[in-house]
Each structure stands twice: as C-alpha cells, then as structure tokens.
Simulated assay, not measured.
Amino acid sequence: MPEKTFGDVLRELRRERKMSQEELAFRSGLDRTYISLLERGLRVPTIDTLFKVSRSLGVQPEDIVAQIKAGR
C-alpha cells in the first residue's frame, strides 16, 4: 500500500466531516485554493497550517502525522 500524503489525509478527514474545502478554509483562516493545493500535494503545509487545519477538523496535529506515517 502506498504511503498517504498530507493531502490524502486532509481530504479524507474533511470528507468524513462532510465539510467542503470552502468551509474548512473559512474555519481555519486559509484560502480555499490553498486547501485545494494542499489536498493535491502541490503545497507542503507549515507547522502553523497543520495546527490550523487540525483544530478546524477537530483532531490533534499528531493524529494527522500518525495517519500519514501509518499510510492509513
């Protein structure tokens, strides 16, 4: 199984919460196009971004990292 990227995990978590990219962007204070770029792997998140999106999704940042590492 190929490893998951940040974008894969982000998209999966967002969809599990039935949240649009626009809603996630609004809640996290980011631009919707930036969320799209993250999900498609065209941008690498900063630590600040990781904390913003994890808070908006209701998960701990370390849980996102663990999912990436585990290839969830």
Rank of each mutant, 00 (worst) to 15 (best):
M1Q: 13
M1E: 11
M1C: 06
P2R: 14
P2S: 07
P2K: 14
P2C: 02
E3L: 14
K4D: 10
K4M: 09
K4W: 02
F6V: 04
F6W: 02
G7V: 11
G7R: 03
G7K: 05
D8G: 06
D8I: 04
V9E: 03
V9K: 07
L10C: 01
R11N: 10
R11F: 02
E12P: 07
L13S: 09
R14V: 05
R15E: 15
R15T: 13
R15G: 00
E16L: 13
R17I: 05
K18C: 08
S20K: 12
S20G: 09
Q21N: 12
Q21E: 13
Q21P: 02
E22K: 14
E22M: 08
E22T: 10
E23R: 14
E23A: 12
E23N: 11
L24T: 06
L24G: 08
L24P: 04
L24D: 08
L24Y: 06
A25F: 07
A25M: 04
A25K: 05
F26Q: 14
F26M: 14
R27V: 03
R27Q: 13
R27K: 15
R27E: 12
R27G: 04
S28I: 10
G29Y: 09
L30H: 08
L30Y: 04
D31S: 04
R32T: 11
R32P: 15
R32Y: 10
R32Q: 15
T33A: 06
T33S: 11
S36I: 04
L38K: 00
E39I: 06
R40P: 00
R40E: 05
R40K: 14
G41F: 01
G41H: 10
G41C: 01
G41M: 06
L42D: 10
L42V: 13
L42S: 13
L42M: 13
R43M: 02
V44I: 12
V44K: 12
P45E: 01
P45L: 08
P45R: 01
T46W: 01
I47E: 09
I47M: 11
I47Y: 00
I47C: 01
I47S: 07
D48A: 12
D48M: 05
L50N: 10
L50Y: 00
F51M: 10
K52Q: 06
K52C: 02
K52P: 01
K52T: 03
V53A: 03
V53Y: 00
S54L: 11
S56P: 07
L57S: 08
L57R: 05
G58P: 03
G58W: 09
Q60I: 12
Q60G: 11
Q60V: 14
P61I: 07
P61Y: 00
P61L: 09
P61S: 09
E62K: 12
D63C: 02
V65A: 11
V65I: 15
V65C: 08
Q67D: 12
I68Y: 06
K69P: 02
A70F: 07
A70I: 02
G71D: 08
G71H: 01
R72F: 07
R72D: 09
R72P: 00
